[in-house]
Design a protein around this nucleic acid. Structure first.
Lengths: 233, 233
DNA sequence: ACACTCAAAATTGTATACAAAATAGCATGC
DNA sequence: GCATGCTATTTTGTATACAATTTTGAGTGT
């Protein structure tokens, strides 16, 4: 049956499908039919269709009339676009969060930071644990957006972060060199806790740019590696 | 049948419903049942359901399981949130547009400006013509976002602009004092045509702030008027 | 061997039937 | 007369049946 059982089948199917897509279980570019999913999750096509509709709205799948759905393949351009927007939104959200965070909010952020540290310190990490660290790192930004108090901003940032997460997980997680900018996260949380909105915003924007450059560097490395393999064969 | 006939019924229903909601034909806060719409548009419930799903994702209706859908009532807070984000996104999009606009793009913007002028100059305007002027004014921002070249940014801005349009049309259009900031639009287009990204961005951000203040002022006037009526009765 | 045509299979789009849940109204009891 | 509980209606959630369209493949003709 479904992975997570919520109130309605539609929501449950949506969650399952989204998880399968974001984590790369269903690889980008692969064609997915309603029937496959319906059979796999043991439900009828109706809730599956509605889940697909929402996923299409999220930009995680693209579907053309009577031709089925394809898991979105993000190219480097979409990635650049997403990070360009993230710099604006994340920066602003972090400023707002620094200005309005309560003690409870601050404790929550520090706890996430600690969890990140804990996961990073595990000696021989499984892939699952590496996933988790990445996920907490991204969740930190979601929580900051939530603390900002701007509900719309929070929603939009969550949508973008989903896509970034999808991209990183499906394209780059095979690289062991991946590193989370733990220091930068810590600095941002510090600035928020100190209530220094201006500094928090500046740090957040720099962090987004840094993450972007880091990913672009890894993509280059990946491309080089693939070229090397192609030449060698 | 449906208002606009596109490829699929779902799309057609979506367009019709969205138009009815954004223009206030279906007033905010009113409950809408799938069956009503299905009967009204002479289609089955299935495409109506899918249209509602998309509208819910757009934030134009909110639906809870087995309780039907309600046209979203925007309060002043949502309005502030939307304009806060618009200032960021619109500003950035305008900067990008100024940096990359082709001659064709510039001609398109100038044509929209001219259309705005034409509609504004009509002596005794019908409500429909007032609608149109407002719509072209908002469309100008959509086109600028499109010209920016950042597809994701364009999509997000369109979503926000839909909501702003909805809010203004349903809450404020009854006021005759409404004025479009034609001069500001012209200045922005000028800056884009001159390729002055920095100035275009600054103007755009100021324009969003100005529009926000203008709407807030009108809201205050509306509130005062309603209080006056309440006291008088 | 290649290309073209037609048909069959697969897949989505739409409609309808049925089930479950929530709301509203009515009746009954206090 | 009011409150409470039950039933009936309304409405969404899900499943399935049917229609339309696209794709694929086989078969035939050149």
């Amino acid at each position: 049956m479904a992975k997570e059982t919520k109130n309605t089948l539609r929501d449950s199917v949506y969650s399952s499908l989204k998880a399968m897509i974001v984590t790369g279980q269903i690889p980008p570019g692969s064609r997915v039919t309603e029937n496959d999913i319906a059979v796999k999750l043991n439900v009828s096509r109706t809730p599956v269709r509605e889940a697909f509709n929402r996923l299409e709205r999220d930009g995680l799948v693209t579907g053309r009339p009577r031709q089925g759905y394809v898991v979105t393949e993000f190219d480097i351009n979409m990635f650049r676009e997403a990070f360009e927007i993230r710099e604006l939104l994340d920066g602003h959200a972090t400023e707002l969060a620094a200005a309005t965070a309560t003690e409870q909010d601050k404790a929550r952020l520090r706890a996430m930071l600690a969890e990140c540290e804990r996961l990073a310190a595990i000696p021989d990490r499984t892939t699952r644990e590496k996933f988790q660290e990445l996920e907490v790192g991204i969740d930190l930004h979601r929580v900051i957006a939530e603390i900002s108090g701007n509900v719309m901003l929070h929603g939009m940032l969550c949508g973008i972060l989903d896509k970034c997460q999808h991209y990183v997980w499906t394209e780059l997680l095979w690289l062991d060199e991946w590193k989370i900018a733990r220091d930068e996260h810590a600095e941002i949380v510090d600035a928020i806790c100190a209530g220094d909105a201006s500094r928090a915003g500046t740090l957040a924007r720099a962090h987004v740019r840094g993450s972007r450059d880091n990913v672009l560097r890894l993509l280059q490395a990946k491309s080089d590696y693939q070229n090397f393999l192609a030449k060698a064969s």
